[in-house]
Design a protein around this nucleic acid. Structure first.
Lengths: 335, 335
DNA sequence: TTGAAAGCGATACCAC
DNA sequence: GTGGTATCGCTTTCAA
């Protein structure tokens, strides 16, 4: 293995000088820099991460805690992961993947063992048991999602409350009076998953303000579940003219079933989906969407956590305003 | 921070003794062990990963290289990731996530800097440029997928050639004579992605043996692309009675379109999907599938790479036999 | 069965 | 602008 001493010897300088050339933490003469950089290239030197971590207390690794549930939308989770790992690399950090099922213990472990410098946590629940542990860690933490007790926490997410409102407002503006929500799976609600309840809150509140009659229903991830959900909604209120779908996984199934039942979108039924933009565009009907900005949220999470590593440490709840894009799936209700 | 010395002091033993209690690399008297373990718990001690890595040349971290392409099936990629991270933890390793777009340089970096002990690489292409780099690394590597030149490599994957054969054989056995394949996106083929070409190979070969007439066509990930693909296939050969879909992302769209066109599955058209079992079960028709055993492949990849870390180092290509499960989407061709 | 101490390969302080 | 070196926290050899 090639060490900093090898490089120093090859360049005819002291090891510390090599270190400073790499870190840029003190000024180096052009000649020396040149010499050192050449030796580094020539020898194919890469600083030993462990040694570095030991000496500097910095691993340059971020940990991301992801949910592995199949009742969450896998594609969206993957978008977050993609965004976070890409952003992390842009800040010269690597990404360690932790799973939610290891619980709070894993967070302790990774922080105490100095495996990662900071943590980003996804799939936050209202009364998330990990929160106290996270608060006690001596490392920066950013949550993607917002738990109930947010004191001292740094969070970033789509403003799902506003998103719920926006969906209802759009349908109300178009003249719809009776609408329905198909939400995530029952399990997601039962866990008190932050985004699900926040969206529902915004949905119901604005429906109240606007005087809309609403039905809401969770939905599991299968064709059959989607079909059952439709059955139930139209049984409860056959007069529904607007449908909000906050469950990306069942979008294709829902659209397929609607067509099969002879319900035209948007002529008979307007549909708004809460999902990544690309997903809305690729369905059988180009869907009016409220975008889930996974890319942006992941990026900001990394930015925030890296800034904390730089010293700043002001807890902050950052909620991104929803963007509603009208496409072909919403229109006036049938006369 | 609590160190091994703190623990040693608290337990009234030498630091080395604490180390041995933890590693189990030499026998310890029950009393001493008890004493040390208690101090560890009491102090909440976690060995510093960097220090450990420096002293032992072991990080207990595996690196997984994943593709971030959206033209690959995200859900399946996520299944691999899930499986690998879970298996890694079972062997007391953490998982570092690398992206394919960082190319061979990232592999070098992670290996040379001793960030990870071993690598698992997904989305392997026929003439993958990363292969020479991987072979030159001084660390164990397992590929998920099989490149053209496999000398010295350890690989694990579904036997996609056999999978292609199995699909054709099943349809042939049922009496179908003219069948079609809807494959991954054109980009996947263009990159020479290992599984795509292997599947196609098995498909064509067996079709030849059985004297079946076939059409094959790649397909992008959108409803429209799926619809276009069907158009084209039925234009080229209106007599098709069997369809093999090696593209999980367009399954819902294809089934939806078939129904819309009045083609009943399996009465008018038999459909076999190559996808994870759960995915096949959740469609509008329970699909006959050849399973993509992501879970199993990921698990074996970890096992193999961990075994290599243990010393054994026999290159090995391990191809899992395909499992075809007959459900409701295949039957005899229409009379 | 246990202890002492020499590294592992960086960083960063203290000199010059 | 550069060099020397103590230090980070652990593993492992050597001794007892």
């Amino acid at each position: 293995m090639v060490t900093i001493n090898d490089v120093a010897a090859a360049a005819g300088v002291a090891p510390s000088t090599v270190s400073y050339v790499i870190s840029g933490k003190r000024s180096i003469s052009p000649q020396t820099r040149q010499l050192v950089e050449e030796s580094i290239r020539k020898l194919g030197y890469h600083p030993h991460a462990g040694a570095r971590a030991l000496a500097s207390s910095r691993t340059n690794v971020l940990a991301l805690v992801v949910p592995l549930r199949t009742d969450l939308n896998v594609a969206v989770v993957m978008q977050f992961v993609t965004s976070v790992v890409t952003a992390a690399r842009a800040y010269d950090h690597d990404l360690l993947l932790l799973t939610k099922d290891e619980g709070a213990a894993a967070l302790q472990r990774v922080a105490s063992a100095a495996i990662a410098d900071a943590l980003i946590v996804m799939d936050v629940e209202a009364g998330d048991p990990r929160v106290p542990v996270l608060l006690a860690l001596d490392r920066p933490v950013v949550l993607i999602g917002v738990p109930e007790h947010r004191a001292g926490l740094t969070c970033v997410d789509l403003d799902f409350t506003a998103a719920g409102s926006a969906c209802v407002a759009h349908l109300a503006d178009l003249g719809h009076r009776r609408i329905a929500l198909i939400g995530p799976s029952p399990a997601v609600y039962q866990r008190g998953t932050s985004y699900a309840t926040r969206f529902l809150g915004g949905f119901n509140r604005t429906a109240g303000h606007r005087g809309l009659r609403v039905i809401t229903r969770p939905c599991n991830h299968s064709y059959e579940a989607a079909s059952d959900a439709l059955d139930e909604l139209f049984t409860q209120d056959p007069g529904i003219t607007g449908l909000v779908v906050h469950n990306e996984a069942v979008l294709p199934a829902l659209l397929s079933e609607l067509r099969h039942r002879g319900l035209r979108v948007p002529d008979d039924l307007s549909v708004i989906a809460v999902c990544p933009e690309t997903m809305g565009e690729q369905q059988s009907v180009a869907l009016t969407t409220v975008a889930i900005p996974a890319e942006e949220v992941g990026k900001q999470a990394v930015e925030m956590v890296v800034r904390s590593l730089g010293g700043h440490t002001t807890p902050e709840i950052r909620l991104l305003s929803p963007r509603l894009t009208v496409r072909d799936s919403t229109g006036a209700p049938p006369a």
